[in-house]
Design a protein around this nucleic acid. Sequence first.
DNA 1: TGGAAACACGAAAACGATTAAGCGATATGC
DNA 2: GCATATCGCTTAATCGTTTTCGTGTTTCCA
Lengths: 347, 347
Amino acid sequence: MVSMKDISAVCGVSVATVSKALNDQSDIGQETKKRIRQVAEEMGYFPNTAAKMLKTNRSYNIGVLFNHEDYSGLTHDYYAFVLDSLKRTVEDKGYDLTFVNTSMRRTGAASCLEHCKSRGFDGVAVICTDFYSPEILQLVRGSIPVVTLDHLFNNVCAVMSNNVQGMKELLTYIHKKGHCRVAYIHGADSAVTQSRLSSFYRTAAQLGLTIPDEYIRMSPYRDTNGTYKETMKLLELRKPPTCILYPDDFSAFGGFNAIKERGLRIPDDISIAGYDGIRIARHIEPTLTTLRQDTEELGKMVGEKLLSLIEHPKTTLVETIVVDGHVFEGNSVAELKGGNDVVTDFI
Amino acid sequence: MVSMKDISAVCGVSVATVSKALNDQSDIGQETKKRIRQVAEEMGYFPNTAAKMLKTNRSYNIGVLFNHEDYSGLTHDYYAFVLDSLKRTVEDKGYDLTFVNTSMRRTGAASCLEHCKSRGFDGVAVICTDFYSPEILQLVRGSIPVVTLDHLFNNVCAVMSNNVQGMKELLTYIHKKGHCRVAYIHGADSAVTQSRLSSFYRTAAQLGLTIPDEYIRMSPYRDTNGTYKETMKLLELRKPPTCILYPDDFSAFGGFNAIKERGLRIPDDISIAGYDGIRIARHIEPTLTTLRQDTEELGKMVGEKLLSLIEHPKTTLVETIVVDGHVFEGNSVAELKGGNDVVTDFI
DNA sequence: TGGAAACACGAAAACGATTAAGCGATATGC
DNA sequence: GCATATCGCTTAATCGTTTTCGTGTTTCCA
């Protein structure tokens, strides 16, 4: 690899001058600058990142935390799309993206934070991980700029998909379609679940809907078996719902199957809606009505906030950026003409 | 950050000694080694990767090329799963994974290869990219260890999903179920498509199947609209097929919808099969029979080969590793009892 | 014309690690 | 008893940059 020393030899100047020429410094003559740059070009020079890093403490490399216990977030539509957007955002600005390796024990770095410091990441995006582990807490409390996705820490920048608004918009849409008996199979307990659930209740109240307890069920995210069973139970109720909400699009397929097995049709006999807006949901028949989270914007916001934090630490404020989602209107939710009973008799 | 100098000061030895102690070198006393290591531990030392890199020319960082024009491979099930497996494989061995940024112009590195050299990647996995671009050619011809996925270059290690065996196994399975009129909507022209298509023809011949030209159709990968249309055309044939193969699982949904729209049932009236084995295919009803590519093994092989190439360059041979896939037996392919006509009249 | 300011460049010290060479002191072989 | 091997540590050079400071030359204005 050709170094500055090589260029300096050819040009008959010192390495310092070469460095200045290449970095567009002020105290250098126009002539020499032009000559050095040309020679550098011809010799196929490009900087040694390690040396630059060592000297400047800047890596132009940002870390991304993407380690879930059960499954890596990579194989999860929502996270994959956010990551994709994040990747494009930071790469556009000349940064690289590196996965933070949590199984890293080779370096002698004991913790996640230490690993990040060792690698010299300029910033870290905490996308998909166990937010309650002490390692993560240490990381966000550390000296490296951090932005989290869908989780709030004190004094840490966060980008949040607006689950409150999302659920409200979804339920309102469904209500507008004439549904009053709406069940919600929510995901396993988490901050996200809590937001959606409370928004569901509040919105229902605002709309004047009465939701019997039997309509609220739980099934883990992305578990089609779970939603299959819960859907069956809902269908066996004395007064089954006219519409069922699922934890996410993937798990909605569990409900899909259960409904089909019972010989019912979607949306003619019963309506369903998912949450996320994964691609496949728009390519099945009936297309799944769902709340589409704006993964493009979410990833972009994480990236931009992080870069801002890195490049303008003084003027960048610590804030929570909330990104709205929007109903994707498929045809899995029927328009009810006659209106259906209000289920006061349930209570 | 605490450096070796700090440790050396505390221990009253030279930095060289510290380095040796920490790196388990031979010419050092057991006593001192133990003491130094303890102090390092207590002070929370971890190495500065940049400095180490600069000196040793090893980064313990491997690059992954993941840039497709239309869509980043991240949002593509097959590639995402391979990447996930690759990630775990290399991270286990203490390596980090960094995306190769092809939009990188900040460093002055003009090409992909230069960028990789600049970053000091120990190796590069070329997973999802335009294999015909000159940049990629330059990269694989360069001095950095490279492993490609599903593409063959001269003298470059490659890991290939076995499309020939895969298609053979799939078609053989379908034939065994009693199908003789099998149509194949293949993907847009590529090396992968060629392998599958020729294997389809050869296997059909071996099985004594006659495939009329109208049964062979083309539709881009992952394009449900395309497969929808082609399926419609197939269904309108004088003698429609009893089973249709699709370019991939995702696009199979296009066929799914078309068939449903025509009022036909799967698999009672017509059978279908996909290719890939994406997760959702196992969670719909009917579950999709498909050729499941072994993404776990593929990613693992890419990683292991790359690490081997990096750590034992002399003894690692340049080879092509072929990974078989296997039929996932869903229930989208019916068992035909009576046997159906051989479609000789088509020719 | 003389002094100050502006300009262009070089020398050298860092950044934090690795490693070859050297050097005393002790142990070993003949 | 003398040469030699072994051990344990230090010295110093080095990787490729950046950056501070110093210095010689030119320019400008009083």
